[in-house]
Design a protein around this nucleic acid. Structure first.
Lengths: 342, 342
DNA sequence: TGCGTAAGATGAAACGTTTCGATTTTTGCC
DNA sequence: GGCAAAAATCGAAACGTTTCATCTTACGCA
């Protein structure tokens, strides 16, 4: 026998012989109800397989127990890993995740945010598709938002990211320490904090060592495997071929490696390569990669924790600082893709 | 100047000097409204930055424009890729995705489904964590559900998957064609359709060739990198070491490769390896992997399309067959990790 | 015994939409 | 110009909760 429609609070109330308000009180534990009636209500709910309707609840309370997560590129393995951390924390706290993929398109991102708002999400986690001032209004409205990984320029609010400057610095110092002098960089759009910071770290290290950063060996602007590949071809065909390269994300790194393989430029013999983001599967790479590893899942965990803390404070009406910035340290893992010169 | 709270339909109605019903009609285009008033309403909505409240809308209509997606393991690169396909189709149709990670735990999966229902999702996509009869009630209730990848045993309903039997068959035939006779298999839990089918394909190929499937070279039950590693150690320490192995998923494959590397068993010289799931990054593997590739994103696209079609039929009250099964063909990609014997 | 009080229980009003039947206005036609 | 029909508009109920003010009950104590 199948019910036509799900049981409602009224059904439970009727069956238990109490008022709807009492059922609500029992379900939420918001008021004292005699043990006897509470028991009756629970039994009734059980037998009707009653499940509170979150939609109705949200409409009334203005809270949804859902948080939105907006990422720029779901096919970049970095983000699913972050999400996994965020999901872990969220589900433990009884929150669900609405996942949105902006496809590196700021306009799409705006649309997604707007959809999220109309679904009344309690807060959002965003890795932005491009730096923009569109977030300012959110912050001004004091809407609970936490940025992770990519943080808008000049953003004042909560955020979690890796110390990308330091990552770029260490990666480059490592190359320099191996006596490389013609060092190239393949970097993402400079409007993205992550890539801009890594590039800055690179510049700083070069400057420290008194090495010039020449325009032709400084390729900025891609993000994809293909762009890494194109940049790779260009760099490896330079009259003064670089002996080392720093790729600021994993996808461009893959593209660069493809270019090197195609041109028959051996790594690390003729080109040392250091990239970003470490994964279980890179242990099978040949050569194994020297990499700046980010605490990926931890970024997700921390960002979600920050957001949930904020939400709780909001619920309890207590004061919370909404510009908590967490910077996690990356770790340079030296393996085989970088080798000393001479 | 910032509004205390979001503008509601009533606000728009007031400003436009019309009734709430008229505003609704304009927003949804459900009734004919004179051009003049429609214009006024739109202007008012614009100026108030009005956005319809999906929550209230859902409560009234019983529809949420949200679909749930439940996967067993978000850290398995296969699923994010499927999701990316599903997300693409969904967002084009104006649907959002609630993503849930069951962590290979059927009880967690049940909890997640229950949460999804209370959020009134319009339908769900599920890759099950374990075969169970708990889905029967869903199907009986005719709740819109589409399974993908992993399909519960005996399930009668809509589903999208790869032809896993054929995948296992081809992979094994390939090894046999290279004159291997001592062929091992590292497979996932046999309660999972994917792994069971791949194992069946393996058995069939072995039987065709008149080769015995010995218990000790048939490791069934893991899913993770670690279990692939453990199985790998066991298999490679067998007195009669297998000369080839078929791993039924990408994670176990990674584990197996680690074991081989650790024991110094060269691939493909001493062990040929074929696995499942191809990725952009495997091109950097050494050796490059012979792999059964699934049309991963396509699985996501098709599954979501199936679900949305069903939802549309439901909305329009038209009849739809709710047991549409789509089986996509995998493709064996022969590369360097398998080599001929003798 | 009676009274004050606290605990328990409840009815009804929201929350922001959609939708339907009723009402008003416009249109077309003889 | 009058009338029927079509078009446009509207008021109000409903969706399933939460919550608050109100009402009832029971208990302890003088």
């Amino acid at each position: 026998m199948v019910k036509k429609t799900d049981a409602t609070m009224r059904d439970v109330a009727r069956l238990a012989g109490v008022s709807v308000a009492t059922v609500s009180a029992v379900i939420n534990g918001t008021a004292t109800v005699s043990a006897q009636r509470a028991q009756k209500v629970r039994a009734a709910a059980e037998s009707l397989d009653y499940h509170a309707d979150q939609i109705a609840r949200s409409l009334k309370t203005g809270r949804s127990n859902v948080v939105g997560v907006v990422i720029p590129d779901i096919t970049n393995a970095f983000y699913p890993e972050v999400i996994s951390g965020a999901e872990e924390v969220a589900s433990q706290a009884g929150y669900s995740l609405i996942l949105c993929n902006a496809n590196e398109d700021p306009r799409q991102e705006q649309r997604l945010l707007s959809t999220l708002f109309s679904h009344r999400v309690d807060g959002v986690l965003v890795a932005c598709s491009d730096s923009s001032t569109a977030y300012d209004s959110l912050v001004r409205r004091r809407f609970p938002i936490v940025f992770f990984d990519r943080i808008p320029q000049g953003f004042r609010g909560s955020a979690v990211s890796t110390d990308n400057f330091s990552g770029g610095l260490e990666a480059t110092r490592h190359l320099i320490g191996m006596r490389h002098t013609r060092i190239a960089i393949v970097a993402g759009r400079s409007t993205l904090s992550t890539h801009a910071d890594r590039l800055e770290g690179f510049r700083k290290a070069m400057q420290e060592a008194g090495l010039p950063v020449r325009d032709e060996s400084c390729r900025v602007g891609g993000l994809t495997i293909d762009s890494g590949y194109e940049f790779g071809l260009e760099l490896l065909r330079l009259p003064e071929q670089p002996t080392a390269v720093f790729c600021t994300n994993n996808k461009m790194l893959l593209g660069f490696l493809r270019a090197a393989r195609e041109l028959g430029v051996a790594c690390p013999e003729r080109i040392s390569v250091v990239g970003f983001d470490d994964y279980a599967w890179t242990e099978n790479f040949h050569p194994q990669l020297t990499i700046v590893a980010q605490p990926t899942r931890e970024i997700g965990r921390q960002a979600m924790t920050l957001l949930l803390t904020r939400l709780q404070a909001l619920r309890e009406g207590s004061r919370s600082h909404d510009n908590h910035v967490i910077v996690l340290q990356p770790e340079l893992r030296v393996r085989q893709s970088t080798a000393g010169l001479l």
